[in-house]
Simulated scan of single mutants.
Amino acid sequence: MIELTINDTRHRLDIDPQTPLLYALRNSLGLKGPKFGCGLAECGACAVLVEGRPLRSCVLPVSSVIDRPVTTLEGLGSAERPHALQQAFIEEQAVQCGYCIPGMIIGAQALLLRNPDPGDEEIKQALSAHLCGCGTHLRIVRAVQRAAQNLRKERSA
């Protein structure tokens, strides 16, 4: 048995310790935010936060996250109470096919945890390893900027 903390909830899974975290999240826990893209940690569709750092769950064995909190897209917010990033992506219409967006939002959250006021170039750099073929890159940058601004307003209120 493996015990994992996913989105602030403790889970016990009867799973091989070398199973990629992505499979545990999707198949065992029913979390559909992280996506299988390339399976090689190159596209970013499977990104999750582990202790605030964006990591690729498709190549990360579950044994490596024992006693380390993992956050998926579902752990940031919900349809009823979206996280500022999720809301900003909606408002900026930054989603087209949507396949890369969970990883993009996770990457953006990791950036905002490090720097609550990133510039355009820093946003582009932080998300450069997340592949998107739909061409909404400018909208994605605007969404991250909007979320950063909204989070700053929340903190100062």
Rank of each mutant, 00 (worst) to 15 (best):
I2S: 12
E3P: 13
L4C: 02
L4K: 05
T5D: 13
R10Y: 03
R12E: 15
D14I: 13
Q18G: 13
T19F: 14
P20E: 05
L21S: 06
L29N: 12
L29D: 07
G30C: 14
K35F: 00
F36K: 10
F36M: 01
G37N: 04
G37F: 00
C38T: 08
C38V: 01
G39L: 06
G39N: 06
A41C: 11
A41S: 13
C46F: 05
C46V: 08
A47G: 05
G52T: 11
R53T: 12
R53A: 02
P54Y: 06
P54R: 08
P54T: 13
R56H: 10
L60C: 10
L60I: 09
P61G: 14
V62W: 12
V65W: 08
I66H: 04
P69E: 14
T71F: 10
T71G: 05
T72R: 08
T72A: 09
E74G: 04
G75I: 09
L76R: 14
G77L: 12
G77P: 08
S78D: 05
E80N: 13
H83Y: 08
A84N: 05
A84Y: 12
L85G: 02
F89P: 02
E91M: 10
E91Y: 11
E92R: 09
Q93A: 02
Q93M: 10
A94R: 03
V95P: 07
G98V: 00
G98I: 00
Y99L: 05
I101Q: 02
G103R: 06
G103I: 00
M104K: 02
I106T: 00
Q109A: 15
A110C: 07
A110I: 08
L112G: 06
L113T: 04
R114S: 12
P116I: 05
P118A: 06
D120G: 08
I123Y: 09
I123N: 03
K124L: 02
Q125Y: 03
A129C: 05
A129V: 10
C132A: 12
G133Y: 13
T136V: 01
T136N: 04
R142N: 13
A147R: 04
A148D: 06
N150S: 09
L151F: 03
K153W: 13
R155W: 14
S156A: 09
A157S: 12
A157E: 07
